[in-house]
């Protein structure tokens, strides 16, 4: 470990880094998302035009990334709550991280078809 740093590496630090990065990304998306939804007060056409962007196959990949960020942030957030409020939480923080990562992988595989299916049909034809 380099001298003069508080960063300790391993599961504890990297899950904290990932929690920060995903949190900031989600916040910026949320800002854009409220703005695009606000177009329903302009006209149905304006809203539908912008929502058409979300149906683009490339943007579908970004949506899959957004789902990945949200699911990780949610699962790791529940782990943080367990570490803070469950008396044995700090002792099992590593096991809880790998459990969260396991659930995350399962959910991400499950989200493949619903989130990317329409994009695959558009790109490869159906």
């Amino acid at each position: 470990m380099p001298a003069g740093t508080l960063y300790r590496g391993r599961e504890g630090m990297w899950s904290w880094v990932a929690h920060r990065v995903t949190g900031v990304l989600i916040f910026f998306f949320l800002f854009v998302h409220v703005l695009d939804t606000a177009l329903v007060r302009v006209s149905p056409e304006a809203y539908d035009d912008v929502v058409a962007t979300y149906k683009n196959p490339v943007v579908a990949l970004l949506e899959y990334g957004l789902v990945a960020a949200i699911l990780f942030h949610a699962l790791n957030g529940l782990r943080v709550i367990a570490v803070d409020f469950w008396s044995k939480g700090p002792r099992y923080q590593k096991q809880m991280l790998w459990t969260a990562v396991g659930i995350w992988i399962v959910l991400m595989v499950g989200a493949l078809y619903p989130v990317l299916g329409h994009a695959a049909r558009q790109v490869f034809g159906s």
Partner: peptide
């Protein structure tokens, strides 16, 4: 955070998974 886990994951399921996913979203 606990409340948002329920609200946001419910939102994602409705908007991106059920009834054709993102394809059905529009003004209607």
């Amino acid at each position: 955070g606990v409340v948002l886990v329920v609200l946001v994951i419910g939102h994602l399921i409705i908007q991106l998974v059920l009834d054709g996913g993102v394809s059905k979203i529009g003004f209607a």
